[in-house]
Nucleic acid binder design. Structure first.
Length: 120
DNA sequence: ATTTGCTCAGCTC
DNA sequence: GAGCTGAGCAAAT
């Protein structure tokens, strides 16, 4: 399964390029509300990708203002990584936003399902 | 709690 | 083009 997108210049559909993929990943990430988190897997499942690809996209995130990559966490609430200050900083930011941790994991009640949010 | 296997884009050479 | 590295995950140990 691979993502299909509209090709504006040709007026046809096409298989998503890497760049397209990243744009969609960042778009979905930007939808996560303040004080909530989404798992890498959740985004990956929507797009039919391996969850690792989402991690790669987050690592390369050049626009932390509109792409809140700190709100993307592991499926069990573990933080995994953060290129701008490490997981310690990631945790700090999430706590400022009101996210509660239990045993160094994000409390499950702060997860949202992007697929449900988009009514997919 | 820790290890193992699967997976694939990006990076280096 | 080949080989290595992970911001993942689930299953097995």
């Amino acid at each position: 399964m691979s993502l299909i997108v509209w090709d504006c210049s040709r007026g046809t559909i096409k298989k998503a390029s890497r760049r397209d993929l990243y744009e969609v990943i960042y778009m979905l990430t930007s939808l996560i509300p303040t004080g909530r988190v989404v798992s890498y897997k959740n985004i990956a499942t929507i797009l039919g990708l391996n969850p690792r690809i989402i991690g790669i996209a987050m690592r390369k995130n050049k626009n932390p203002i509109i792409t809140p990559c700190h709100r993307v966490v592991g499926s069990k609430g573990d933080l995994r990584g953060y290129s701008l200050g490490g997981v310690k900083m990631k945790k700090k930011i999430l706590e400022i936003e009101g996210v509660v941790f239990r045993n160094n994991r994000v409390d499950y009640r702060f997860f949202i399902d992007l697929a449900k949010l988009l009514e997919l």
